[in-house]
């Protein structure tokens, strides 16, 4: 396995400036960039965080504007899998160095909404903490947060800075009475973040209650950025992993494989690579129908794998 050294062209080094263990499995970290480049980020932004010496990275939402919070603040839930990034992050001490991508935002608050209903489960709360910090006073909002009973105190601590009248903590999903919460003024936008099953329930219940899709917004880290997959490089004989939340192009760059690129958005076609085995999942807007169906070529910046592994002509 190649070990990466970059999360893409603009990766930057940070050090852990502050750690707060909110519960046995929830840890808040404040990360401070080692350079002096600008930090500001819009609400809903996330970072890819990579543990040095590994090719592994995971995406974490910022819980507030890094400029006002004096650093990138994230909350990390330690996962069940002992080999994951979250375990490494839970094992770090103040002063440790990490690599992060620049903040990226695919979940900005719905612009123009007069009222927001925010529904989150567990760690899905994090982007909404940034929303709550950024909403101007004239915007009406309410947050419904599902918690495990043993983590209620941790989440209460994270939501403590805000008007308690705008926050509802519920013990477990069963405590959420959908018809009541979805009975909102017509101009309300609903945003949800949490595990995939929770988001499916949100979309299903909202549709049942007559919400139009344009008023329902969900952050699906794994669906937006895709599942992890493995890559074999036929010519160099290398192997690498593309994490969830990381693009193939970023993973190749991490592994020191140089690929031409321009737009990094699936539009220009510069990062076209040949596929020798495995089925690519095309997400670009460049390839024609024949190339798509053929599956012998893909754009590394946006496209992913439909199988667990791809073999590339690199």
């Amino acid at each position: 396995m190649l070990t990466g050294n970059r999360l893409g062209a603009a990766e930057r080094e940070v050090r852990v400036a502050e750690i707060e263990d909110l519960s046995p499995r929830l840890r808040r970290l404040r990360l401070l960039p080692c350079d002096r480049a600008p930090m500001a980020a819009s609400p809903g932004s996330h970072l890819l965080v990579r543990v040095p010496g590994t090719g592994r990275a995971a995406a974490y939402s910022l819980i507030g504007d890094p400029e006002t919070m004096a650093g990138y603040e994230i909350v990390v839930r330690r996962s069940e899998r002992p080999d994951g990034v979250s375990h490494r992050l839970h094992g770090l001490a103040v002063g440790a160095r990490l690599s992060v991508s620049p903040p990226r935002n695919f979940f900005a608050p719905a612009a123009g909404a007069r009222r927001h209903l925010l529904l989150s489960a567990g760690i899905g709360l994090t982007p909404f903490l940034a929303y709550a910090r950024a909403f101007p006073p004239q915007v009406d909002w309410h947050l419904v947060q599902i918690v495990r009973p043993e983590e209620r105190a941790a989440f209460a601590r994270l939501t403590a800075p805000f008007d308690p009248a705008r926050i509802t903590l519920l013990d477990g999903r069963a405590a959420l009475c959908w018809p009541d919460w979805l009975d909102q003024p017509l101009d309300t936008h609903l945003s949800a973040c949490g595990p995939a099953a929770f988001l499916e329930t949100v979309c299903g219940e909202a549709a049942k209650a007559g919400w139009v899709p344009a008023r329902v917004h969900v952050e699906r880290f794994t669906a937006a950025e895709g599942q992890a997959f493995e890559v074999r490089l036929a010519r160099s004989g290398g192997r690498l992993s593309v994490c969830a939340g990381q693009s193939l192009l970023e993973a190749l760059e991490s592994a020191g494989v140089s690929v031409a690129y321009l737009c990094r958005g699936g539009v220009c076609g510069a990062c076209r690579v040949g596929v020798l085995a495995g089925r690519p999942e095309h997400r670009d807007r460049v390839l024609d129908a024949e190339e798509r169906a053929g599956g012998k070529v893909m754009l590394a910046c946006v496209s992913r794998a439909r199988d667990d592994a791809l073999t590339l002509d690199l």
């Binding site: 893409g8 062209a9 603009a10 980020a41 991508s101 620049p102 903040p103 990226r104 935002n105 695919f106 321009l262 737009c263 990094r264 958005g265 699936g266 539009v267 807007r285 460049v286």
Partner: peptide, 17 residues
């Protein structure tokens, strides 16, 4: 025009074009 829109919607602060 449609490709440009799709690209612009996904643009991030690090995108330089």
């Amino acid at each position: 025009i449609e490709r440009g829109l799709a690209f612009a919607l996904r643009m991030q602060p690090e995108t330089q074009v």
